[in-house]
Simulated scan of single mutants.
Amino acid sequence: MRRIDVIAISLGIFAIGGITYFLFQAIGFDGLSAGVWSQALLVVVVLAWTLTYLFRVANKDMTYNQQLKDYEEAVLQKRLEEMTPEELEKLQQEIEQETDNP
Rank of each mutant, 00 (worst) to 15 (best):
D5F: 05
I19S: 11
A8T: 13
G28Q: 03
Q97R: 15
T99W: 14
G35C: 02
R56G: 04
T99H: 10
N101M: 09
G12H: 10
F24W: 09
F14P: 01
F22S: 05
V43H: 02
F22R: 01
D30W: 04
L42F: 04
Q93C: 06
I7A: 07
S33E: 06
V43L: 12
Y71Q: 10
Q39C: 06
D5H: 14
T84F: 05
R3Q: 08
V45M: 12
I95H: 01
L68T: 08
W37M: 10
S33P: 00
L47K: 02
Q25F: 03
F55Y: 12
V57S: 03
Y53S: 05
V36S: 12
T84Q: 01
A15Y: 12
G35A: 11
I19F: 09
Y71S: 13
L42S: 13
T52K: 12
R56Y: 08
R56D: 07
V36A: 11
V36G: 04
Q77S: 06
A34L: 08
F24K: 03
Q66D: 07
L23A: 05
Y64H: 06
T52G: 04
I4S: 15
Y21F: 15
T84D: 02
E96D: 09
E96Y: 08
E81V: 03
Q67N: 07
I19H: 01
S38L: 04
F24C: 02
K60I: 03
W37D: 01
V57F: 11
N59S: 11
L51W: 05
D30T: 00
Q77L: 10
D30Y: 01
Y53N: 08
I13H: 00
E82S: 09
M83E: 12
I27T: 07
Q92N: 13
L54C: 03
K69Y: 01
V44T: 13
L11R: 10
A40V: 10
M83Y: 04
Q66M: 11
L80P: 00
I9D: 05
D30P: 02
V43I: 13
A74R: 14
F22M: 09
I9F: 13
E87G: 07
S10F: 15
L68E: 13
Y21R: 03
G31H: 05
R56Q: 13
G18A: 07
L76Y: 08
I7S: 09
T52I: 07
K69D: 14
